[in-house]
């Protein structure tokens, strides 16, 4: 039995010493994963027990089995899919629009030095402004519904996209650009063949930040206007004092946030193959 575990831990070893090295690295990796799961398990169990034995008030904290039951019920009557999908949909639309428009604006700023000089103070100002403050304005402009929520999601993420991507574009290796110019490249070819390619990692860092920000925008938007979505459930649950609903929504939100983030990471891995 021990022999077998040893063999798995030292798999692909070139020498015995290399095997020992691999074993150390792999044991550490397993240790980290185990600890992560252990923390989750301890928190869930402690929460459950504390609520059962009334160490904490289950009415205001809810507890894991109740949350599981709520999820199960919501899954059966279709509420789970409806609200989760609403939030994901609004976030993805806001995020995608923010990324596309942000990328276009960053490109325009890189293209024209004059434009970037002119707009710089305005962008800095917009970045410093807490975008949530614009929520009520958005509702008046875009109506009391999904459009306003998407607007919020877009607004929160777009400025960061513009700033991060434009700064990346501006710092493109000048010698690579010079090389292309000596080969006779025009501005568009320079953009396509160097500026964009060299900045794919930067663009993905911006996307990773923004998928989270877009979700924040969506939730805030849902707090303000919506009739569906996880943000709506949280507000509604709070108003009718159904804490299990609030907790359930927050936990689903955690999972959604994680999934959306890993969606970007997955895209990045597929697109940037030369890095490893």
């Amino acid at each position: 039995m021990f022999k077998f575990i040893e063999r798995i831990l030292t798999k692909d070893a070139v020498t015995t010493e290399h095997g020992q090295y691999l074993k150390r690295v792999r044991l550490k990796k397993i240790g980290v994963k185990f600890s992560q799961l252990a923390i989750l398990a301890v928190v869930i169990i402690a929460w459950e027990l504390a609520a059962r034995y009334k160490v904490i008030d289950p009415f205001i904290t809810s507890y894991p089995t109740q949350i599981a039951k709520t999820i199960y019920k919501m899954a059966l009557n279709g509420e789970l899919v409806k609200h989760t999908w609403t939030t994901i949909y609004e976030t993805l639309v806001g995020f995608t629009l923010g990324a596309i428009i942000g990328l276009i604006v960053a490109t325009a700023l890189w293209w024209s030095d004059y434009l970037s000089k002119v707009f710089e103070p305005y962008i800095v100002l917009l970045n410093a402004l807490p975008k949530m403050a614009l929520g009520p304005i958005l509702i008046i402009w875009l109506g009391n519904g999904v459009t306003a929520i998407i607007g919020m999601s877009l607004l929160v993420s777009i400025i960061v996209t513009i700033m991060m991507v434009y700064n990346g574009f501006r710092e493109t290796d000048n010698n690579k650009i010079k090389l292309l110019r000596t080969l006779g490249a025009n501005q568009f070819q320079i953009f396509k063949k160097v500026v964009l390619m060299e900045n794919l990692p930067t663009i993905f860092s911006a996307l990773k930040v923004n998928i989270g920000l877009s979700l924040v925008g969506t939730i805030v938007g849902e707090f303000l206007v919506s009739k569906a979505g996880l943000g709506y459930l949280i507000v509604y649950g709070g108003q009718v004092f159904k804490l299990s609903l609030v907790m359930t929504s927050v936990i689903i939100l955690c999972i959604v946030a994680g999934l959306l983030y890993y969606l970007i990471v997955w895209l990045e891995k597929r697109l940037i193959k030369w890095e490893n």
Binding site: G184, V194, E198
Partner: peptide, 19 residues
């Protein structure tokens, strides 16, 4: 302007890592 008959080689290779 850029002359098609001239090629320029710089101090470093500036190979594009993504190609």
């Amino acid at each position: 302007g850029i002359n098609q008959r001239v090629a320029y080689m710089l101090q470093e290779d500036y190979l594009f890592p993504w190609r």
